[in-house]
Amino acid sequence: MHELSVAEAIVESLNKKLGERRFAALRKIFLRIGSLSCVQDEALRFAFSVLQESGRVPKISLEIERVEAKLKCNACKAEFKPEDNFIRLCPHCGSFDTQLICGEELNIVAVEVGD
């Protein structure tokens, strides 16, 4: 349950980036979260609701875009989505020599301010 520290980190960096006045007008945060990151949507929404109750944070809605993990095989060059239990295994040629293309994201894409 580190969603609360993730939420706090997001709030802190947006406060710094937007300035206090625009931060107070913050309405929506667009996030991109990879399937391999350990952040759960519901827990993150709950963490934001806790921060809102403290009064330090305006009422914000979260729009979360989930990114499925994708890998590239260095042996046969195929791109593939990992099977459940064998993340690194290329389903085409059986090689373990593969690299992640995406799936580890935990990014703030954009925000919406105003009413």
Partner: peptide, 12 residues
């Protein structure tokens, strides 16, 4: 009015 601001940075 609503305004969208691009941020594009790591949450952490």
């Amino acid at each position: 009015e609503k305004e969208r601001i691009d941020i594009n940075q790591a949450a952490l």
